Simulated assay, not measured.
Amino acid sequence: MSSLHGKVALVTGAGRGIGRGIALRLARDGADVALVDVDAEPVNAVADEVAEIGSKATTFVADVSEREQVFAAVDHAAAALDGFDIMVNNAGVALVGPIADVTPAEIRRVWSINVDGVLWGIQAAVAKFAELGNNRSGKISRIINASSIAGHDGFAMLGVYSASKFAVRALTQAAAKEHAADGVTVNAYCPGVVGTDMWVEIDKRFAELTGAAEGETYEKFVGGIALGRAETPDDVAGFVSYLAGPDAAYMTGQAGLIDGGLVYR
């Protein structure tokens, strides 16, 4: 039997990149998956992939910066898939630029998605776990948040993004302490340089700001990885699946680095 057989997971930002990789891995490990994204088209395509694996999927369009939309997504997941066990707060955006140039609008956008979105996901998940009586029935309840290597090191030209990911670590630790007695574990995953569209945009922005050739910044970061290659969404998804499963039952409040050997703690 697969490690997540019979479990219901929700993944935000599931239409592409790391979120898609996580959703497909959880499905391969037996979970039914609610796919949430701000755009309908990509999550519908991922739902078809989940169905090919043999798990159930449902989709929901939501902006994670809006609290009521996150709660509605969780309500939909629980109703459509008959339960709720795992919340993966994956959705996020990057911002590249010097701290001196950050505008109020830019910081509001990053914070509302990367931090507020995680907070609303935590709130919605713990409320649904309680409503369903997961703790009383002995079911696993997992909250898994997207931090980053930038949540352990503040990177130049990524100051606001780094701050948002440090904040995710703080929310993860506090929520783990507050909800341990409810049978809920709360952990975070901290990827490094992943070959996704986000890193394409980060590289382009570095090129604009520094004069580096396109691809140069990406290759520079990849060159510092001990394992000698860029990360893939599947690399991240394997760790998230572990956090979602029974073998991680005694782990909470942690923000694990999964970066191939780039940042060490």
Score class of each variant (00 low, 15 high):
Ala163Asn: 09
Gly238Met: 05
His152Lys: 11
Ile22Gly: 04
Glu131Leu: 05
Ile258Phe: 09
Ser65His: 00
Gly117Lys: 11
Leu95Gln: 12
Gly215Leu: 00
Gly17Asp: 02
Ala14Tyr: 09
Ala51Tyr: 05
Phe166Ala: 03
Trp199Ile: 11
Ala14Phe: 13
Ala62Gly: 07
Asp247Ile: 03
His179Trp: 07
Phe129Ile: 00
Gly192Val: 04
Asp39Lys: 15
Val184Asp: 07
Lys7Thr: 11
Ala77Ser: 13
Tyr242Gly: 02
Asn134Cys: 07
Val33Gln: 05
Gly21Asn: 10
Val200His: 03
Val194Met: 13
Ser3Pro: 10
Ile144Ser: 01
Ala124His: 03
Val43Ile: 15
Arg108Asn: 13
Val93Lys: 08
Thr252Lys: 01
Arg142Cys: 08
Tyr218Pro: 03
Met198Gln: 06
Gly15Ile: 12
Lys165Cys: 07
Phe166Met: 04
Gly154Thr: 14
Ala244Asn: 02
Ala249Ser: 15
Lys165Ser: 02
Leu132Arg: 10
Thr210Gln: 01
Val61Ala: 05
Val168Met: 08
Val118Leu: 01
His76Glu: 12
Asp153Pro: 02
Ala27Leu: 09
Val102Ala: 12
Ala127Ile: 02
Asn135Ser: 14
Phe155Tyr: 15
Glu41Arg: 14
Asp234Asn: 12
Val168Phe: 00
Ser137His: 13
Val74Pro: 07
His5Arg: 14
Val193Pro: 12
Arg142Lys: 15
Arg28Asp: 07
Ser148His: 06
Asp235Gln: 02
Pro98Leu: 11
Trp111Ile: 12
Ala79Gln: 14
Leu4Asn: 02
Thr217Lys: 14
Gly15Glu: 05
Gly261Tyr: 00
Trp111Thr: 13
Lys7Ala: 11
Glu131Pro: 08
Gly256Val: 07
